[in-house]
């Protein structure tokens, strides 16, 4: 084999992947930066340069600020929930792994993950309907006060959290299960001989061995959560009531694709990109101290 090809070969292998990511993922980020300083709506012939006007308009917008604050709340609630609860479930399933019904548990818990948002939305609006939905029927039966659920401004965000969690925890659960299944058996036996209880064993031996998985899950969860919320908001609350369950990405979606205000929408996109880059950098700074993918 000619040595020229040998040197070129790796680039032929990685080239298509790198190019497609560059064009379809990084390209739009730069395009967003460009659009964010323009006034243009897809149909108008004139394109106006407006500098930072879109940014100042967005930062002044009360709905934007609500959406930004909501996004923080969503992350604070959902990210720990999406990491820890699936781990608990995975540990329990792992504990009964020899039982014939463990596949059934795994399957039912994973089921919502394979649903489309449109289907999930229909099912949950039935459960949550404040007038005669099932939750209120059950509450009424036991004599609890009825709730307005996703139409209550103070509960809407939590309802979106609940549905998002329901819809997405399955994947992380599978990843944790995989990590647990992969732990070496000898370790468990050794620590049992040492007299370590299951809890201590878990925290001192199992968990440290799963740090690559933990790191991977925490990184992907952060960014999937942002996306997943949009789908749920779109089918459940449309950001309402009165913007109280909106998130930054949903705000972007509305501005850009319902009202065709590409400039302000792209300004939102650029702001999100900056935040995402900073958070990613921080996460890797913290994560890399403990894990090495090299």
């Amino acid at each position: 084999m000619p040595s020229g090809f040998r040197r070129l070969a790796p680039y032929l292998f990685v080239g298509p992947a790198v190019l497609s990511v560059a064009i379809f993922l990084y390209g739009p980020l730069f395009a967003s930066a460009l659009l964010s300083v323009l006034d243009w709506n897809l149909l108008s012939a004139e394109v106006r340069f407006v500098g930072v006007d879109n940014y100042s308009a967005i930062l002044d917008n009360v709905d934007f600020r609500t959406a930004a604050w909501n996004t923080v709340l969503y992350c604070v609630i959902l990210i720990p929930a999406q990491i820890i609860l699936p781990l608990l479930l995975a540990v329990m399933i792992h504990a009964v792994r020899r039982s014939p019904v463990q596949g059934l548990y795994r399957g039912s818990l994973f089921l919502p993950t394979i649903l489309a948002y449109s289907v999930a939305g229909v099912a949950w609006s039935w459960l949550l309907n404040p007038v005669n939905g099932l939750f209120n029927e059950i509450f009424g039966f036991f004599g609890f006060p009825k709730s307005r659920w996703h139409t209550d401004p103070d509960l809407a965000l939590l309802c979106v959290c609940l549905v998002t969690f329901w819809k997405t925890f399955g994947l992380n659960m599978l990843l944790w299960l995989a990590a647990l299944a992969n732990l070496p058996h000898e370790l468990r036996e050794a620590s049992q001989l040492d007299g370590a209880g299951p809890r201590r064993h878990f925290f001192t031996i199992s968990l440290p061995l799963m740090t690559p998985t933990a790191f991977f899950i925490s990184v992907t969860t952060l960014f999937h959560v942002l996306d997943d919320i949009v789908g749920v908001i779109d089918v459940l609350t449309h950001g309402g009531p009165a913007g109280r369950s909106s998130s930054l990405l949903y705000f972007l979606w509305q501005q850009g694709l319902q009202f065709f205000q590409f400039g302000p929408a792209s300004a939102v996109a650029v702001i999100i990109i900056v935040v995402v880059l900073v958070v990613t950098w921080l996460e890797f700074r913290v994560g890399e101290k403990r894990v090495h993918y090299g």
């Binding site: 309907n129 404040p130 007038v131 005669n132 139409t151």
Partner: peptide, 18 residues
Amino acid sequence: WLPVSAKDQDAAFESGAL
């Protein structure tokens, strides 16, 4: 009055809840 979406309102009316 419990304000809900148009779809939920119709469903509630049709089922005799509203």
